[in-house]
Design a protein around this nucleic acid. Structure first.
Lengths: 244, 244
DNA sequence: CGTTTGCTTGAAGTAGGTCAATGTGAGTGG
DNA sequence: CCACTCACATTGACCTACTTCAAGCAAACG
């Protein structure tokens, strides 16, 4: 695989062998580009709900509000992710999308997806599998937020993010670049920014992590894994039943 | 539709017009039956992970444990639900399945699903849509557990359950049969049984609900909806893009 | 070089947890 | 038909993990 491959192609070829037709179809999703600065809400340009996005560069997140302004971040998006599947099936947009740092985004209309659904049963099966895996990850998150202490929730977030990044990059580094401020971390794991600060310090004091700017080094990853019985969901997808 | 239709057929025909072939395929999923008493864990009978289930009667739930015994219920299952999709894509079983009351379950091997995936693009699209909608609902749950007070979480649970049941039954009653004890409710919304008791009482004192045995009457449903900005996800699925 | 954005720190408050006792209704067996 | 049990719900007293509020500080930025 060359360096010029799109991140989407790079991500999906982790699971199946993509032929040239599929590659072309996927590459077509990244034709347009849009650059956005840090901390801006992304709104669909054209007809509402028609646009999906492939992330080309940078982190984003989707969040939901409560009536009084409380906020919950429900998903963090990385390069290679497709954003907006939920808007295909549910007409109403359920979340707001926001950049965590400068981002490059490729918007495409949902009819471009139809092509894939129609012509590539193999890619369809993969997208289905990824959707179901997503359920598992959300389920893990519910377990974390519903039943874990602050320290354990932070451990969960760090392990989840580093496992996910490793599943694409394959570099086995234990350093995680985390371009989120502590209020965003708080809104992800259901705490306050103040307590996130204290908890990160305490994890650092106990030698689990080391912080350096926006990077976090996991010094005792095994310890964190044991702390919460963490299961890496990004490792394996069963592709044996896929058509072709 | 006749009364003898399987609950699975009944549920899915809410969204698309099922032809006879599809109906037969779906009915085949409910050939075997297994009756289970209240509060028993369901284990696969044959080869591990091979079995999926259609719920024919009764409630169940899936839960996950923490190292020290804390428990989080991540999904409640009703008649008509298919349980076990996650085990198709991920080989590891991620949750434990347990009956909340006496239950009738129809186990079937996953290769029976292959038939549907191969022969009915329309049903495939529907299953994909349901999987994506499930993400939205899990996301709503994360919002509730991550950011809501005890009272709001209980409101969310009640509204979610009654909306879901209405989407199949279409009877517009405001009474919800809730065959879960307060420890199970607690493990669903991330509280303790004691505090669930106090919160239900407080909701009753304020005239939001009335309790009668295992039934809960929502006296001021609008009030509960406004309290948490509840969105009913069970109402609409966009089937316009489905093949055929 | 002033302003903003984000992190840290301290003090005080509270929502919900923990522990333990009591109450209660539905079986169940004699 | 009564006694016993068992599973649940309730109640009270106390506790703590986390929140809230507010101030100070450092680094980035225009």
């Amino acid at each position: 695989m060359s360096d010029e491959d799109s991140c989407l192609v790079q991500k999906l070829s982790n699971y199946i062998e993509l032929n040239d037709v599929s590659r072309a179809q996927l590459a077509a999703l990244e034709e347009d580009e849009r650059n956005l600065p840090k901390h801006t809400d992304v709104h669909a340009t054209g007809a509402t709900g028609d646009a999906l996005y492939v992330v080309k560069k940078g982190w984003l997140y989707s969040y939901m509000d409560l009536p009084d302004g409380r906020r919950q971040i429900v998903k963090i998006h990385h390069p290679g992710d497709i954003i907006g599947f939920q808007d295909i099936t549910l007409k109403v947009t359920t979340t707001t999308l926001r950049t965590a740092e400068p981002v490059c985004l490729c918007p495409f209309p949902k009819r471009h997806l139809d092509v894939i659904f129609r012509d590539s049963p193999q890619l369809t099966a993969l997208l289905f599998s990824l959707a179901v895996r997503e359920q598992t990850i959300l389920t893990d998150t519910i377990r974390a937020i519903g039943r874990m202490s602050a320290r354990e929730r932070i451990a969960f977030l760090l392990l989840d993010l580093i496992s996910r990044i490793r599943s694409i990059n394959r570099n086995m580094s234990n350093t995680l670049r985390l371009p989120l401020n502590q209020s965003e971390i708080a809104d992800t794991v259901g705490l306050t920014n103040v307590y996130v600060s204290r908890t990160l310090q305490s994890l650092e004091d106990d030698g689990f992590i080391k912080r350096d700017g926006d990077e976090i080094i996991l010094l005792r990853e095994e310890g964190l894994i044991n702390m919460i019985d963490y299961d890496n969901r990004y490792a394996e997808i069963d592709t044996s039943w896929f058509p072709q």
